[in-house]
């Protein structure tokens, strides 16, 4: 249960986490409650991100744009019937790595501020860089396989 509550945004968790835990202690953790909590987590992140902006762009919209970009690339790839499976896997991993790298970096920036968040001295900064490395590696693999 605590793991589920940990998935809520930090400010939300600090304010309502304990109360939510108490309520879940009463209701128990059935599959229905788990689904409800997962929807609540999604909703809380949506609210959290919609209140934050980067260069005037709301973060939730930025995530939607990024996801759409990834879906677009994947759809383009799927429509290429002659592309072999290995290339598809490489591109899917590359795109997922890129998405995760950006997400982890954004979380780090929000946690620690712009200057510290962009440095490599933090755990999340290093993790983001690792995902970027994975992205570069798999994207190069894709290009090599495609040619």
């Amino acid at each position: 249960m605590k793991r589920l509550i940990y998935l809520y945004p930090k400010p939300w968790r600090e304010r309502y986490g304990e109360e939510l835990e108490q309520v879940v202690e009463h209701t128990g953790l059935s599959s229905k409650i788990i689904i409800d909590l997962l929807l609540g987590i999604f909703d809380a992140w949506h609210v959290e991100l919609s209140e934050r902006t980067i260069c005037g762009i709301r973060l939730d919209r930025l995530f939607v744009l990024m996801s759409m970009f990834n879906v677009f690339v994947l759809l383009q790839l799927l429509s290429l019937r002659e592309v072999i499976l290995l290339e598809q896997i490489a591109l899917i991993i590359a795109m997922l790595s890129f998405l995760l790298a950006v997400c982890v970096l954004l979380v780090n920036v929000f946690k620690l501020g712009i200057t510290k968040g962009l440095s490599l001295n933090t755990k999340l900064g290093k993790l983001s860089m690792a995902f970027m490395g994975s992205y570069a590696l798999f994207f190069v693999s894709f290009l090599v396989l495609a040619n």
Binding site: W12, Y16, L20, V23, I33, D36, L37, L39, G40, D43
Partner: peptide, 12 residues
């Protein structure tokens, strides 16, 4: 009401 729904509404 599920706890997630309840506290989502309470926070709003």
């Amino acid at each position: 009401l599920g706890p997630g729904t309840l506290y989502g509404a309470i926070s709003r």
